[in-house]
Each structure stands twice: as C-alpha cells, then as structure tokens.
Design a protein around this nucleic acid. Structure first.
Lengths: 196, 196
DNA sequence: CAATTACGACACGGTACGTTGCGTTATTCC
DNA sequence: GGAATAACGCAACGTACCGTGTCGTAATTG
C-alpha cells in the first residue's frame, strides 16, 4: 500500500525538479524504488500516473463572499494566479491538454481532475444572480469562459506577468462584460497593490 | 531542394491522417522517402519540423473593415473558429504549447510561428480607436486577451461547439468589456444564423 | 496455517531518439 | 565539359523508454 504513495511522491519530485518532460515510468520507478510493474498495475500508464499525481497535489481554493461580484472574482482570480504563477503547473496543464486531445481516456481524466476548479466561480456567479447583480438569464457556462479565458490566454499562452493595474483593469472589463456596468471598486483605504 | 518540400508534405499528411502523436522523425523519413539525416539537417529536430510544417500550412486571415468594432471582431472570430474547428489544429496547438514550455528554443518558435495570428485583431482595434469607438488609452495587449481568451477557453479546453446565439452573446460581452457599451448589432435583415 | 494479494527483480522485443561516417548524386561555377 | 561544392541517401551506432511477461518473495488476511 505504501508503494502507491512512494510513486506519487517521486512523480511530484521529478515534476518539480526536472519538469514534465523528465517524467517517465522508468524514471519514476528508479526514483521511487518501486518496480515498474507495480506502477503499471496501479496507474495503468503514464497518463494515469501524471493525472493522479496532479490531482493529489491540487487543493480546491475556497470561495470567498465579499458581497459583490467584482470582489468575489478579484479574490478567486488572485488565488488562481497564485497557482498559475508556478511554471510547473502551467507545464503540467499544457501537457494534460495535449494528452486530452489524443484520446478519449485521457480526455476523461482531464475533465475529471480539472486543474482549474470551477466551483468557487460558479458559486460567486450564482450569488451575483441572487443579489440581482446579474440577470437570471445569465449563461453561466459562457460566463465562466469570459472570466477564465483572458487569464488563461495571458498567463498560459503569453507566459507574461500581470501587473496590479492590468489585473484590476482586466477584472473591471470582465465584470463589465457580464453586467454592463462597472463593478465594485477595490476598497481604496488600504493601498494594497496586491501583487507585483 | 525538393527534399524539404517532400518532408513538409509528408509531415502534414501524417499530422492530418494520424495526429500529432504519430509524427516522428523516423515516420516522416519513411513516408517522405527522405533520409533521416536530411531531416535533421534541415529542421534540427522534431520541434523545428513540426513548427515549420505548421507555419507552412497556416494562412493569415484577412482583416475585414466593416465600420464597427463589433462587426470586425465578428468576422475575425468567425474565421478563427473555422480554423480552430479542426481538431488537428487544436491538437497541434496544444502540442506546441507543451513544447514551448519546456525550453526557450521551442518557446521562441512558438511565438514566431504563432498559430492564432494577432494582426487582423490589432488592426481592428486600432481602427476602433481612430474612430473614437475605443478610448486612446486602450491597452491593446490586454484587449487581445479579452478577445481571444474566452474563445480559446471554450474551444480548446471545453472542446465543445459554439451555437450561433452563444457566439453572438460572447461577441456582445467582449465589445461590452472593451467599450462599456453595446456594439453594433448584426444586420437584422438577412437572417443568417451563421453557423450551427 | 494456508491462501490470497501486493510487490520486487529481471528480461524481452519493439520503437524512436540523436549522431556518425561514408558513399552517391545534383548543382554550380569556371 | 569538368571539377568543386553542396545536398542527399544509407547503414549503423548507443541510449532511452515503452509495455508485457514471468517468477519468486513478502505481507496481509481469514
């Protein structure tokens, strides 16, 4: 039973220290001291192994309730950026993406062990609808993409940092897209220029 | 001299018929009848080969001038969706993404042979600014992500189709995010429900 | 204690990698 | 036309990882 944990730990170590490209069944077997056979028995193959290792190291962020959509999204996006700021996470995400596109099995794993958790955002949107901040006709699926899309584009594809001002501008644009109005401003008193 | 063309053609064929996973130097060598050595001499390796093949098969869409930002974006996005509707393109895109993240050389290729051309969108934005439709302070880089992001999220990650209504809603939200107002409506006379 | 289960060790054939040395054509340039 | 130069083909090399199979041993369980 300990073999499984050893394998997952070794996988995570290689992932962090050498990148996704260095993760192979044989490398993990060497590092963990577990026989290759055992890894195949547990995870079925490289895909299963990486997806399992990723799932084991992802913690679902909590959904804040600040009273406004803009406030909620600001907090959620900030947490997301913290996760996405790790290049390993982006690497693994991109890797999963390619695997997901080359077969239904991996695609199923990808959707199951989703890297970017949707939960908190959906909750925030539903609260905004309940408050009347968003129309009840809001297409939540579409809204998710409007919210996540720009950040994914910026961080994953461009691989560039986001300044505090850009972050806020993006947030305002997003809220604007959803509501048609400007969202609640960042509380001006404590001059926290949250990041960068 | 003809060897290069034969290699690129063979690569594209394998790409289309068997997917990115089947593309290997040896497979391309077999199929093209060109020696492995020659491929290495020309393209340096698998990365160079795939990037070159992708670049050779991408045609820059033209930037329409409909007189309004919403109109321009509608046309550009439509063209983009046509390209992205091919699962091979998405596969290759995702593959390039992973390669780009595991080394500066591939990253440089990725940014050079960009799959989604930015040109037309940038032009459309600049025209909108010139028209006064967008403020001159508009951050074009950020705007690009607001425009591309949701579509990338929807098509690449979700792998789901976009209905005509969703497409239009997304467009309106995007324009809304950029301008703060509703963009020009789709001309109502010819009831074209463009796709799906 | 016996039976099942989990694991380790070793080996196999197969594929692709990236590189090398050496012939064999084409081009190009007087 | 003939020589020099570049482009290409061929065969083989060692390395790495794949996925699978077999067998022996350790741990667990009833």
């Amino acid at each position: 039973m300990a073999a499984r944990a050893k394998v997952l730990r070794a996988t995570a170590e290689i992932l962090i220290q050498e990148g996704i490209g260095a993760v192979s069944i044989e490398a993990v077997a060497r590092r963990s001291g577990v026989a290759k056979t055992t890894i195949y028995r547990h995870f079925g193959g490289l895909d299963g192994l990486v997806f399992a290792a990723a799932a084991a190291s992802v913690s679902e962020p909590d959904g804040p309730d600040t009273g406004s959509l803009a406030g909620d999204l600001r907090e959620i996006q900030r947490q997301y950026l913290d996760i996405a700021s790790s290049s390993i996470n982006r690497e693994v995400f991109a890797w999963m993406l390619t695997r997901a596109m080359s077969g239904p099995e991996a695609a199923a794993m990808f959707r199951k062990e989703r890297v970017q958790p949707r939960g908190p955002t959906v909750v925030a949107l539903q609260r905004a609808i309940a408050r009347g901040e968003l129309p009840p006709t809001t297409n939540i699926e579409l809204a998710m993409h409007v919210i996540q899309g720009p950040l994914i584009s910026k961080r994953i594809i461009d691989d560039s940092e986001l300044t505090s001002d850009e972050f806020e501008a993006l947030l305002q644009m997003t809220v604007h897209a959803l509501t048609g109005n400007v969202g609640a401003p960042r509380e001006p008193s404590r001059g926290r220029r949250s990041r960068n």
